[in-house]
């Protein structure tokens, strides 16, 4: 089980679940759901956050939140 923040830039994976309920609620409300395909596009220039693509949409998300996204 890996988390989203440990995905290498350019790689994709499928979301399995969320390890934190508050993050889950927020991410799911934005359309990022278990089963969604997610791709890590790049890391922020000064670190701390990542640029992801999920279901044809781009999002910026902090590493703290990305840690709660469990991948298949």
């Amino acid at each position: 089980m890996t988390a989203l923040n440990s995905l290498a830039p350019g790689k994709s994976a499928i979301i399995h679940s969320f390890s934190d309920e508050a993050t889950a609620c927020k991410m799911m409300s934005m359309g990022i759901l278990p089963g969604s395909k997610v791709k890590l596009i790049r890391k922020a220039p000064f670190g701390g956050a990542i640029y992801i693509k999920a279901d044809n949409q781009q999002f910026a998300i902090r590493n703290n939140e990305a840690e709660c996204v469990v991948l298949k």
């Binding site: 927020k26 991410m27 934005m30 949409q57 998300i61 939140e65």
Partner: peptide, 10 residues
């Protein structure tokens, strides 16, 4: 308020 960054990049 918990600080979040979960931002749509439109």
């Amino acid at each position: 308020e918990r600080s979040f960054l979960l931002l749509e990049l439109p």
